[in-house]
Design a binder for these strands. Structure first.
Lengths: 219, 219
DNA sequence: ATTACTAATCATCGAGTAA
DNA sequence: TTTACTCGATGATTAGTAA
């Protein structure tokens, strides 16, 4: 069994529910022929990593708990490996700048706020502190965070609007409890950092535009 | 390239530094022949996932940043997949064991007690119920909690002693209101769980060492 | 459009062995 | 002990095609 086959199916949605996956679609994802994908699916079924339902024109697939188990094991392995490899504390310095108010908008959306509350343990002040990263080093750390797992906030739909997934990193701005927020599909470049906190950071730390702040993040 | 080969090398220490790995040792880890392991190492080197140094009797291997990158990518994939798959209620089973009395010590410290009172809504009985996790599943849930946010209790200084930050998860031990307490920098391993409650759990539920209890936690 | 069989081709494996 | 070669055997892949 190749773990990548299972991952491919999982990311197509088979982890959570019966999902229509034709053998040629899996073939595309794996970069193989339709025949190979078909055989791999049969193999995974035989080894009970997936269950499926073959219909007249197509099939529906879902990972079994045994399949999920495999993914979890590998995930945990990688967790350990990467944890040891990464430094556990980063310090990012940046300049306080004014945002466009979108932060304030997003921090009022219930779908986000509820998740922040349960996953970070605090209700964010409805607004974000925007930091501009001036040095290459700081931008590099930001880019590293982008790649790391962090605390995942799931995307959701509200009305006809879709709110994308973001991730967070617990941080401290001069001892003040806070979190860095990074959208999965980031719009602005790698030189901005958005920070949330239970309090209004600007007031709590008496900050104004142009001030340099130090953000400590532990991963 | 098979990701499992790279993972095997990484968990043997090659992620962080040049590490002596003979082809037969890798063969053991992969469950293959020495020849196959040797060829796989050469392949990984050719594709620049690792660098190595072949000595008269042995070799030293280290993952390149390209190699680490691959692990990180897979890790992140799995992160997303498993995140969506995680349930919001966990049930942890474990065996009641005697602690060393530290729980009782910490539960008398005002700096902690006040925070428990305000953040959990109850004053903890001055003592903890210690649970030993017997199965891999239970330990995995514990490890998951470690990563999640929970209710944060801040660290503080008192005199010349520093008390580290901990986090809590509201829980129930057989319907009894309680909370799991997990120190940020945990001293003991992942097979112990400390539980606090407004009442003395042992008496309220008539428990003794060796009894199995079920802890339900919602995140 | 599907899934999946067959048969030919291609890649991988490991015993034996050299250096 | 090592690493790593050759080469026959075994497995995996895919084109062609049936259903």
């Amino acid at each position: 069994m190749n773990i990548l086959d299972l991952i491919a199916l999982a990311r197509m949605g088979c982890a959570s529910k019966m999902t229509e996956i034709s053998s040629s679609r899996l073939a595309d994802a794996l970069g193989s022929s339709q025949q190979t994908a078909s055989r791999k699916i049969r193999d995974l079924e035989r080894e009970e990593y997936i269950v499926r339902e073959v219909l007249p024109r197509g099939q529906r697939i879902k990972l079994t708990s045994r399949g999920i188990e495999v993914l979890r094991t590998v995930h945990q392995e990688l967790d350990k490996i990467l944890q040891e490899h990464e430094p556990c504390t980063y310090i990012i310095n940046g300049e306080v700048v004014s945002g466009l108010g979108e932060g304030s908008y997003y921090m009022k959306i219930k779908g986000y706020v509820d998740q922040f509350k349960s996953k970070l343990g605090f209700e964010p002040f409805p607004g974000t502190l925007n930091i501009k990263l001036k040095t290459e080093d700081d931008r590099r750390i930001r880019q590293t965070l982008q790649k790391l797992g962090g605390i995942r906030i799931q995307g959701f739909k509200q009305g006809d609007r879709t709110f994308g997934p973001v991730k967070c990193f617990r941080a401290r701005v001069d001892e003040l409890e806070a979190a860095i927020v990074i959208p999965d599909r980031t719009h602005h470049g790698f030189d901005k950092l958005e920070i949330i906190s239970p309090k209004k950071i600007r007031e709590a730390l008496n900050l104004k535009d142009g001030d340099i702040v130090s953000v400590k993040v532990e991963v």
